[in-house]
């Protein structure tokens, strides 16, 4: 019997989680660690089920998803525009580049006290830090992608009279696309990471991070783990969608990689 490539990949990928769960189960049931510190996998599954039965958990997930989506979208669109501008114009690069490169060295979490002072404990600063988190990688990768467009393509374009907007739309952006989609995929990961920071540092009633906080406050580690698993799965799911979209947009070069 032959096993398909996909099944093999899935089985291969399952080994580590499976071993982890077995070790976890063993340690949890050994009694060395108090159950409120390390709940057993069974307890976590229980919490998972009860959480998902409650309608409230859906509200928390929705709140988090909304934050990530808005921040990620604004960050991606503005990052793409800014990267495009700096990539196309040496003048823009000279004006904005140094400031951008200094400011992005500051971990985003470092700005939280400041933006709370300015905007209060509201939804705005939460979305803002996710936006900034998505903005950096998209800007950097769009910029790099454009600067790395082979000069041969520009030569070809001038032979065929491609210039201005047509040149950007038909040559520059498609040529830079692999780099741009890499930036977008990274941005999504950063958005999820910063979602946690946003929800843990800027108090809110709704969000997966809020549930994790609640679990900590109540010594309910099962709740914390459920939160972690929820964030992980949602992040994985969304990243997969973005990666598939990127592949669909880039058929010609995906073939190249497979060969």
């Amino acid at each position: 019997m032959s096993i398909s490539k996909k099944t093999k990949a899935f089985l291969g990928g399952s080994i580590v989680p499976l071993v982890l769960v077995i070790v976890w189960q063993y340690v949890a049931s050994s009694g060395y660690i108090a159950s409120f510190i390390l709940p057993s996998p069974g307890k976590v599954i229980d919490t998972f089920v009860t959480n998902f039965v409650e309608k409230a958990y859906a509200t928390h997930i929705a709140a988090s998803l909304k934050r990530v989506m808005i921040g990620f979208l604004i960050g991606t669109v503005s990052g793409f525009s800014f990267g495009l501008l700096m990539g196309l114009s040496r003048t823009a690069e000279k004006i904005f580049g140094p400031f951008f490169n200094v400011i992005r060295q500051v971990p985003i979490i470092g700005f939280i006290p400041l933006i709370i002072m300015w905007f209060g404990v509201t939804e705005l600063p939460r979305i803002m830090i996710i936006t900034v988190a998505a903005f950096y990688p998209v800007t950097l990768n769009t910029f790099a992608g454009i600067r790395n467009v082979p000069k041969e393509y520009f030569e070809l374009s001038s032979v065929y009279g491609y210039k201005g907007l047509k040149l950007i739309r038909r040559i520059v952006i498609p040529a830079a696309l692999p780099s741009i989609t890499t930036g977008i995929t990274l941005a999504l990961g950063m958005s999820w990471a910063m979602l946690m920071a946003a929800e843990l540092f800027i108090q809110t009633y709704f969000g997966i991070g809020t549930r994790i906080q609640l679990g900590r406050d109540k010594f309910n580690m099962a709740l914390v783990i459920v939160g972690i698993i929820t964030v992980g799965s949602l992040g994985f799911f969304m990243t997969t969608i973005v990666e598939q979209l990127a592949k669909a947009l880039d058929r010609g070069r995906i073939i190249q990689k497979e060969n």
């Binding site: 041969e152 393509y153 070809l156 040559i171 498609p174 040529a175 696309l177 880039d250 058929r251 010609g252 070069r253 190249q256």
Partner: peptide
Amino acid sequence: FQDHRLLPWLT
């Protein structure tokens, strides 16, 4: 050109 210079994202 010496290199075919076809655009890889186009058929």
